[in-house]
Design a protein around this nucleic acid. Sequence first.
DNA 1: CGTTCACTTGAAAGTGTTCAATTACTGTGG
DNA 2: CCACAGTAATTGAACACTTTCAAGTGAACG
Lengths: 236, 236
Amino acid sequence: MSTRPGYTPIACTNCGIYQLCHSVGGDADLSVLDTLVKNRKTIKRRGFLYRTGEPFKAFYAIRGGSVKTSTIADDGRVQVTGFHGAGKVLGLDAIVTGQYNCEATALETAGVCEVPFSRFEELSKKIPDLQYKMMQIMSREILDNRELIMLLGKMSAEERLAAYLLNISRCPEHGSPRLEFSMSMSRGDIGNYLGMAEETICRIFSRFQEEGLITAQRRQVTLNDLDRLRAMARRK
Amino acid sequence: MSTRPGYTPIACTNCGIYQLCHSVGGDADLSVLDTLVKNRKTIKRRGFLYRTGEPFKAFYAIRGGSVKTSTIADDGRVQVTGFHGAGKVLGLDAIVTGQYNCEATALETAGVCEVPFSRFEELSKKIPDLQYKMMQIMSREILDNRELIMLLGKMSAEERLAAYLLNISRCPEHGSPRLEFSMSMSRGDIGNYLGMAEETICRIFSRFQEEGLITAQRRQVTLNDLDRLRAMARRK
DNA sequence: CGTTCACTTGAAAGTGTTCAATTACTGTGG
DNA sequence: CCACAGTAATTGAACACTTTCAAGTGAACG
């Protein structure tokens, strides 16, 4: 999307708060914007950025590491709603209700910057582009969720996993998909996310390997046949 | 949510553009805001508000009638992503991409007001509260989508239908659920939305009737046992 | 060096789908 | 106002896919 000419974006900033800040007009006071992204935190594996029910004070932009978000139903069932890496902004769903409606857990040590919502509101009054960017980010989130809905509602187990693998292969956004990478989430997490049993994930991983589509050694994955994976992600 | 004291909201306006406009500060020029909601249209059954791929020019606030939104995968498969009534704002997912990513179809004659995005942007520069409200609306949409994700990812067929019936029973928002109502969507639409076959919907409708939970005559539905339905929507 | 957690695999059991046939509406035109 | 046509809804039976339960393997970590 529109990065102003003459401005060099920071690495891995495609869709995050950095983009949020850095894509606003060159006339904006960037040193002011920087105050938005200064409040940094590090969350260790299994640590929470925020938990369900906590009052909404800030949203979070991921600088590095990886984070999963999950919602908990009244009866205790958990649904993983996403895996997130550098650049992603989390916590936006809390704006309406004033409290976080899901929880965000670090899958591996994650660096985030905490953006107090009050600070954001303050600044966005001065810089209209900022709110516009935020709307874009939220609009993107709606789109992403819809993709998951399609996955869960209409696709078979194989299709889901194929689509999933293709998705995470292009995680750092921009650029071509990585063919080899290490996943930070467990089979159980993947299964939960894709709406199927952990065992089913395992079986399909095995099947994909037998068919030469991928090579998987625990969480280390290599995609051997992108084309066939892509075809598979479309129809059974 | 916060309706200013002393201001009488229009009927059925809980979460729409009316709320958007009318909940901004009393200091705002309401006659200006009114220009946002003047551009009215009527869409007949099976007619489209917008279709996938069309350029994003405006979003739509439903004034009356009912509308379904659906996405289409590359291979042609369709996923119904929601049923919407008075007050709902549609088209927000198009902000990032600049074109509509789903299509909105009238299930029965629907009145909408078309809000040109350019007009909205213009006004929101003058009235910061407007963009804030919009963020709330988008945040709500993210939350709603997440509910569907939970439904599709973690719930059994019976649970889904029970949850669905409870959902649409409180469609006009605010106030207690209607126990008797007429649905504007077909069994096929419901099935598609809930990620199951039309036949499965029928069977469960029948089962619910045998068990005295509901009375259903085609699209005319009466909920006979809210408590049991609620229990059912929670766990199998 | 043992214990724990993550992953894998097999077999049996469900749950929901598909295909097919039938019935019940709705709307239209004679 | 009725007959017809087309669409929507329902139901049965066989089948397919995914889950569940159970057991076993292997890697990681203190």
